[in-house]
Protein backbone atom coordinates (compact mmCIF):
# COMPACT_ATOMS: atom_id res chain seq x y z
CA UNK A 1 0.00 0.00 0.00
CA UNK A 2 1.09 3.55 -0.47
CA UNK A 3 1.83 5.71 2.54
CA UNK A 4 -1.56 7.44 2.60
CA UNK A 5 -3.41 4.13 2.65
CA UNK A 6 -1.04 2.75 5.27
CA UNK A 7 -1.74 5.71 7.52
CA UNK A 8 -5.48 5.33 7.03
CA UNK A 9 -5.21 1.62 7.76
CA UNK A 10 -3.19 2.33 10.90
CA UNK A 11 -5.71 4.85 12.20
CA UNK A 12 -8.63 2.55 11.50
CA UNK A 13 -7.02 -0.33 13.38
CA UNK A 14 -6.00 1.90 16.29
CA UNK A 15 -9.50 3.35 16.53
CA UNK A 16 -10.98 -0.12 16.43
CA UNK A 17 -8.53 -1.31 19.11
CA UNK A 18 -9.55 1.56 21.39
CA UNK A 19 -13.29 1.51 20.85
CA UNK A 20 -14.37 -2.03 20.06
CA UNK A 21 -13.15 -3.95 23.17
CA UNK A 22 -14.72 -1.29 25.40
CA UNK A 23 -17.98 -1.34 23.46
CA UNK A 24 -18.14 -5.13 23.43
CA UNK A 25 -17.41 -5.30 27.18
CA UNK A 26 -20.18 -2.76 27.72
CA UNK A 27 -22.68 -4.90 25.83
CA UNK A 28 -21.78 -7.88 28.02
CA UNK A 29 -21.87 -5.89 31.25
CA UNK A 30 -25.25 -4.36 30.47
CA UNK A 31 -27.02 -7.65 29.87
CA UNK A 32 -30.23 -8.17 31.81
CA UNK A 33 -30.73 -11.86 31.54
CA UNK A 34 -34.11 -13.39 32.27
CA UNK A 35 -33.63 -15.96 35.02
CA UNK A 36 -34.49 -19.53 34.10
CA UNK A 37 -36.48 -21.75 36.43
CA UNK A 38 -33.25 -23.54 37.33
CA UNK A 39 -31.83 -20.31 38.72
CA UNK A 40 -34.77 -19.37 40.90
CA UNK A 41 -34.70 -19.93 44.65
CA UNK A 42 -36.47 -23.16 45.53
CA UNK A 43 -39.24 -21.31 47.31
CA UNK A 44 -40.10 -19.52 44.07
CA UNK A 45 -39.36 -22.34 41.67
CA UNK A 46 -41.63 -24.90 43.27
CA UNK A 47 -45.05 -24.48 44.74
CA UNK A 48 -45.25 -25.44 48.42
CA UNK A 49 -45.24 -29.16 49.10
CA UNK A 50 -48.63 -30.72 49.53
CA UNK A 51 -49.77 -32.42 52.64
CA UNK A 52 -52.57 -34.64 53.75
CA UNK A 53 -53.61 -38.17 52.99
CA UNK A 54 -52.03 -39.95 50.04
CA UNK A 55 -54.88 -41.05 47.81
CA UNK A 56 -52.87 -42.75 45.07
CA UNK A 57 -49.37 -43.48 43.93
CA UNK A 58 -49.18 -43.92 40.18
CA UNK A 59 -46.70 -44.23 37.36
CA UNK A 60 -47.95 -43.20 33.95
CA UNK A 61 -46.90 -41.99 30.53
CA UNK A 62 -47.27 -38.32 29.70
CA UNK A 63 -46.29 -37.89 26.07
CA UNK A 64 -42.93 -39.60 25.82
CA UNK A 65 -42.08 -39.07 29.48
CA UNK A 66 -42.72 -41.57 32.25
CA UNK A 67 -43.70 -39.77 35.44
CA UNK A 68 -44.14 -40.92 39.03
CA UNK A 69 -46.91 -39.22 40.93
CA UNK A 70 -48.56 -39.03 44.31
CA UNK A 71 -52.03 -37.57 44.70
CA UNK A 72 -52.71 -36.11 48.14
CA UNK A 73 -55.72 -34.48 49.72
CA UNK A 74 -56.22 -32.47 52.86
CA UNK A 75 -59.26 -33.91 54.60
CA UNK A 76 -60.27 -30.63 56.18
CA UNK A 77 -59.96 -28.26 53.27
CA UNK A 78 -60.40 -30.87 50.51
CA UNK A 79 -57.41 -29.21 48.80
CA UNK A 80 -55.79 -31.74 46.47
CA UNK A 81 -52.10 -31.69 45.62
CA UNK A 82 -50.29 -33.56 42.88
CA UNK A 83 -46.65 -34.45 43.54
CA UNK A 84 -44.95 -35.35 40.30
CA UNK A 85 -41.48 -36.54 39.30
CA UNK A 86 -40.53 -36.96 35.62
CA UNK A 87 -38.08 -39.84 35.18
CA UNK A 88 -36.45 -38.01 32.27
CA UNK A 89 -36.30 -34.40 31.20
CA UNK A 90 -39.12 -33.82 28.68
CA UNK A 91 -36.50 -32.08 26.43
CA UNK A 92 -39.12 -30.02 24.69
CA UNK A 93 -39.19 -26.22 24.46
CA UNK A 94 -41.02 -24.76 27.48
CA UNK A 95 -42.89 -27.84 28.70
CA UNK A 96 -45.91 -26.78 30.75
CA UNK A 97 -48.27 -28.94 32.82
CA UNK A 98 -52.00 -28.22 32.76
CA UNK A 99 -55.00 -29.72 34.56
CA UNK A 100 -58.05 -29.98 32.37
CA UNK A 101 -61.59 -31.03 33.26
CA UNK A 102 -61.84 -32.70 29.85
CA UNK A 103 -61.08 -36.33 29.06
CA UNK A 104 -57.54 -36.88 27.68
CA UNK A 105 -58.74 -38.28 24.33
CA UNK A 106 -60.10 -34.86 23.46
CA UNK A 107 -56.84 -33.07 24.22
CA UNK A 108 -53.95 -34.87 22.58
CA UNK A 109 -52.51 -33.03 19.61
CA UNK A 110 -54.82 -30.05 19.89
CA UNK A 111 -54.35 -26.77 21.73
CA UNK A 112 -54.94 -26.20 25.40
CA UNK A 113 -58.70 -25.94 26.09
CA UNK A 114 -59.88 -22.61 27.48
CA UNK A 115 -60.95 -24.12 30.83
CA UNK A 116 -57.57 -25.79 31.44
CA UNK A 117 -55.58 -24.54 34.41
CA UNK A 118 -51.83 -24.03 34.27
CA UNK A 119 -50.08 -25.94 37.05
CA UNK A 120 -46.48 -25.02 36.20
CA UNK A 121 -43.35 -25.95 34.30
CA UNK A 122 -42.30 -29.57 33.97
CA UNK A 123 -38.71 -28.94 32.83
CA UNK A 124 -36.10 -31.19 34.36
CA UNK A 125 -36.51 -34.21 36.61
CA UNK A 126 -37.05 -32.52 39.95
CA UNK A 127 -39.93 -33.53 42.17
CA UNK A 128 -42.46 -30.76 42.53
CA UNK A 129 -45.92 -30.34 43.96
CA UNK A 130 -48.81 -28.63 42.25
CA UNK A 131 -51.98 -27.60 44.08
CA UNK A 132 -54.93 -28.70 41.94
CA UNK A 133 -57.92 -26.45 41.28
CA UNK A 134 -60.99 -26.78 43.49
CA UNK A 135 -62.88 -28.37 40.57
CA UNK A 136 -60.56 -31.39 40.77
CA UNK A 137 -62.31 -32.42 43.99
CA UNK A 138 -65.69 -32.61 42.31
CA UNK A 139 -64.89 -34.08 38.91
CA UNK A 140 -62.33 -36.28 37.21
CA UNK A 141 -60.04 -34.61 34.72
CA UNK A 142 -56.77 -35.04 32.95
CA UNK A 143 -53.19 -33.79 32.87
CA UNK A 144 -51.80 -32.16 29.73
CA UNK A 145 -48.17 -31.70 28.82
CA UNK A 146 -47.99 -28.70 26.49
CA UNK A 147 -44.95 -27.29 24.67
CA UNK A 148 -45.13 -23.54 24.48
CA UNK A 149 -42.30 -23.58 21.92
CA UNK A 150 -44.06 -26.03 19.62
CA UNK A 151 -47.54 -24.69 20.49
CA UNK A 152 -48.91 -28.21 20.78
CA UNK A 153 -50.04 -30.76 23.35
CA UNK A 154 -47.36 -33.41 23.71
CA UNK A 155 -49.36 -35.86 25.80
CA UNK A 156 -52.28 -36.33 28.15
CA UNK A 157 -53.26 -38.72 30.95
CA UNK A 158 -56.38 -39.22 33.03
CA UNK A 159 -56.42 -37.93 36.57
CA UNK A 160 -59.49 -39.40 38.35
CA UNK A 161 -59.29 -37.05 41.30
CA UNK A 162 -62.95 -37.10 42.24
CA UNK A 163 -63.10 -40.92 42.16
CA UNK A 164 -59.96 -41.31 44.23
CA UNK A 165 -61.13 -38.71 46.70
CA UNK A 166 -64.42 -40.57 47.10
CA UNK A 167 -62.59 -43.88 47.62
CA UNK A 168 -60.33 -42.21 50.20
CA UNK A 169 -63.31 -40.87 52.11
CA UNK A 170 -64.99 -44.27 52.06
CA UNK A 171 -61.88 -45.95 53.35
CA UNK A 172 -61.60 -43.63 56.33
CA UNK A 173 -63.09 -45.04 59.57
Amino acid sequence: MNRRLRHRHRWMVLSLALVLPAAFSWTLASRRLDPGTGQLPAVLADPPAGHGQVLAVREFLLGSVIVNSRLMADSASRQMTLEITPRTDPREPDPLLYWSPEAPEAESGSGVPPDAVLLGSLRGTRTRSFPLPKDAATRDGSLLLYSLGHQSVLGAATLPTQSLLAQGAAARP
Binding site: L20, A23, F24, T27, L28, R31, R32, L33
Partner: peptide, 11 residues
Protein backbone atom coordinates in the same frame (compact mmCIF):
# COMPACT_ATOMS: atom_id res chain seq x y z
CA UNK B 1 -19.23 -7.49 16.87
CA UNK B 2 -21.79 -5.02 18.24
CA UNK B 3 -24.59 -6.75 16.30
CA UNK B 4 -23.80 -9.98 18.17
CA UNK B 5 -23.14 -8.26 21.48
CA UNK B 6 -26.39 -6.30 21.41
CA UNK B 7 -28.36 -9.12 19.81
CA UNK B 8 -27.76 -12.80 20.49
CA UNK B 9 -25.63 -12.23 23.58
CA UNK B 10 -28.29 -10.06 25.23
CA UNK B 11 -30.83 -12.85 25.25
Amino acid sequence: VLHVGLGALQA
